[in-house]
Amino acid sequence: MVNRKLVKVLTFRYTILALILIVLAGGLVLLPKYTKHEGINPEELLSNAISPERYISTDALADKIVNQDPSNILIDIREEIEFTKYSLPNAINIPLKNLLDEDSIPYLNQNQFNVVLFSNDNFYADQAWILCNRLGYKNIRVLKGGLNLWFTTIINPLKPDQNESAEEFTLYSTRKAASMFFGVKYPEQVKVDAPVIKKKAPKKVFTIEKKKKAPAEGGC
């Protein structure tokens, strides 16, 4: 038996479909609007933030600089005064307050280079990193420990104790070599050989025997 009620409803099927469309379209108009945030979503930002890849160690960076790896841009985000006093070789100075300036965007928002941010510690560099990530910039990393760690590990590495492992010693010698690259002089490097004092050759004394004078002969 055909369900009469259903048949009756189905005669209006196009009207019902039209009403559904209108209701859905009207729903779009009536829905409360919210502004979407630009850039990446919080979950992605979090996963970037906890990723160990966001840091570069001082040793890895020193290795890249020594090998003249062209794929890195070093960005010093400290103030200009500090930058002029000391910075890493070929670093660019973009103080944190100028991070979002138009001039600094080409350095940060690109895909070809690895950008390494650093400050004295990694605190300010981390803040810059968060801002850059939020804007969706790629390939941004932070120098772990900043310039302070750079000094204690690369420029002035601590000599390992005698009973430490062999790896410590190889690490120390690599760091020491790196520090020599960055212009640190070591005592053994500057040690001047003690001047060799030449012994004076003893004078040979030639004794010339004088000819015995012929005794005067009597003559005239």
Binding site: Y14, A18, L21, I22, A25, G26, L28, V29, L31
Partner: peptide
């Protein structure tokens, strides 16, 4: 765009 879609829907149904 939401108003546009709404008006577009009404126009479509009127045309149908």
């Amino acid at each position: 765009r939401y108003w546009f879609v709404f008006i577009f829907t009404i126009i479509a149904i009127v045309i149908f």
